[in-house]
Amino acid sequence: MNTDALKELLYKIADDQLILGHRNSEWTGVGPLLEEDIAFSSMAQDKVGQSYQLYQMLHQMGEQEPDTVAFMRNANQFHNSQFVELPVGEYDFSLIRHFLFDHAELIRFSMLSQSSYEPLAQLARKIKGELKYHVMHANSIIKQLGNATEESISRLQKSLEGALPYALGLFEPSPFEEALKEGGIFEGETALQAKWEESIRKIVEQTALQLPDLKTLTPVYGGRSGVHTEHLQPLLDEMAEVFRVDPTAEW
């Protein structure tokens, strides 16, 4: 098995989950209504927990402890897509990001549940069941607000158009695409993207929103190789503040 390819895959998935988990948690206590506050907080808890198990898997392959990996790296050592590090913005942007990201993650983990790397396949079977609830939540709220008022529709439309180039960055090809496919570890970003497009289209078609022609958009790449926006480092500093003060603290 190609360990470098597997590690690269695990890092980017774990980093996406960790960073978006922290972004989601920024809605805790300030969500627009109680159910949404709880939903974003719950999804945050799921995602951070999922990232922990992925870092744990990396640890078993010889990488550092999960806490060290999560809290001691700088922005250029993170492999998350730029999409997940963008600030939460207005609620319409957070909802659109949640919708676009979780459709991709559910499909990614469904694909990984067939992985030839058995520990990953086992974990993916578990995680995909949890992500179904994230997608269910996204679909129901996008369908409600995407058919509601002129304001809700125009806000979501604007956020959708702004978010899509970043969302396409989720599928930035890895230098190991062929190795992952050949080893049966993962079917690859191209296959994932095709399924994702079909999956989001099905929902957008049930709303008053218009999905732009994705072929005309330029994906925002870079995140997978450590190139990030100015938004990531401040987030990491905040996330790691307590850990860096006292790495041995129990809490």
Binding site: E35, I38, A39, S41, E130, Y133, M136, H137
Partner: peptide
């Protein structure tokens, strides 16, 4: 169903 998310996961 009001929300797929409640007081615990």
């Amino acid at each position: 169903m009001k929300s797929p998310f409640g007081p615990t996961l």
